[in-house]
Structures are given as C-alpha cells and as structure tokens.
Computed example of a mutant assay.
Amino acid sequence: MKITDIKIDVVKRELPDTGLSSDLGRFFGEVEQGVLRIFTDEGIEGNCFVGEFRNGGESLYNPILKVLKTELIGGDPSEREFLWNRLRLLTSRRGMNMSAWAPVDVALWDIQGKAAKMPVFKLLGTQRYEIEPYATYPPRHTSYKGYVEEAKEIVTDGFKAYKIHPGAMNTTDTIQMVNKVREAVGDEVELMLDPNCGYDFRKAFDI
C-alpha cells in the first residue's frame, strides 16, 4: 500500500458565547479546523481533525501540506517510525513541530486499522473493552449553585463521573464550589477539576 495524496478539508463552526471568561480568556465566535485526509492506492483513507477548539488549525496546515506531504507521498503508511526518526531533522531545518505531526500519526493509524479491519485500540493491544464515561460542560457558572445543579442533572442522567470546569473562579470560591458539589452528589460520584491549564503551582497546590 502506498500513500497517493494528502488534503485538508477546512470546516468552520460557531462556538457559543457562555458569557463567562475562563482562565485562558474568553472564546466564542467562528473557529476554523481541518479534517486531514490521507489517501492510498488501495482506496483506504486515513482521517484526523487538525487544530484545537480555541485557535483552530490554520497554523498547522502548511507544515503538513508543505513539509510532511513531501515526506509521505509514495511511502508505506505503516512506516510511522520512519517519520518519527526524521522529526528532529524536519524540526530544525524545515519548521516542523509535534503539533503538526500528531494528526498525521493518528491518520496513519486510522489507515492501518481500516486495512486490518480492526479498531486501532486492538492493534495497540487492548486490555479492556469498556470505559466509564464522564459528563462535562464548558465554564458557564459564576457561583457554586450553578455547578451543584449541573452536577445533580448529570447524576440524574446516569453518569458516575463529573469533570468541573471552574473557569476564572478564584481559589476560595473554587474550594467552596467543589465541597458543595461533593455534598450534593455524595461520595460515589467521581469528581474532576479541569482549569484548562490556567493554574500556577500555588493555586493548584491550594485547591
């Protein structure tokens, strides 16, 4: 099997305005992301999203289409290690970065899974077939009361785990909010706190 072409389809979507600012700023409006498409001579296509929900994927398109594409065309999609071994050279000489290589690696795995008619997790060597889901929302509350109601709704819907996004809530209010949520849902529900990389060491330690 050989790689014959690589394209990126651009998808634009609207992020809703929650009315709140998070630790990393306030994100809403139009965001552009890419859908990576790696084609092969056997008709199998590998796919992966390019970019992330806040900043889109535009900065990654050129490294993929102008650097990695020339490395991949005509190659065997199963030879992922070949590219991994060239990353240092491509980074130093041609402006490559890991963020651009990551979706390509996923798309190449996608091709292998489709060729083997197996999900990729089996190719990687699975140890389990089920995983407990959790529920979450973007930061959309300014006090603990909103998070308590959100947690109750999630538990009522059957979830046993809840990831909380506190947004720009300060340390004292965050601690109070988590305690109130714990009181509301009991000890059987797993709670997670995700500040979206917004804490420094001191704030993370205190919370």
Rank of each mutant, 00 (worst) to 15 (best):
R94Y: 12
A161D: 14
I175D: 11
I111N: 02
L65Q: 10
D23Y: 03
E149K: 05
V181R: 00
Y134S: 02
H141I: 00
T156L: 01
R140D: 04
L83Y: 13
R94Q: 13
I131N: 13
Y137E: 06
L123K: 09
T18H: 09
V185K: 11
L108M: 10
R202W: 06
L20R: 11
E183G: 07
I38T: 01
R128H: 07
Q112G: 05
K12S: 02
K160S: 15
R88N: 10
R93H: 05
E45N: 07
D187R: 10
V10F: 03
S59W: 00
C197S: 08
P139I: 03
F159M: 14
F49C: 10
V11S: 08
E149G: 05
M98I: 05
Q176K: 13
Y144K: 01
E58W: 00
E81V: 13
G186H: 10
L87V: 08
I8S: 03
T91D: 10
A184I: 02
Q112S: 02
M118P: 04
L191T: 12
V155F: 05
E52I: 01
K12Q: 04
V178I: 15
V178S: 07
K69C: 06
A115F: 00
N55V: 08
W84Y: 14
A102P: 02
G113N: 04
T91N: 03
R37F: 00
E45Q: 11
D173M: 14
Q112N: 02
L24V: 08
I131R: 15
L191V: 07
P77G: 14
H165R: 14
V104C: 04
K69V: 03
F53P: 07
K122M: 15
G43V: 10
V148W: 06
G46I: 06
G46F: 08
V181Q: 01
E81F: 10
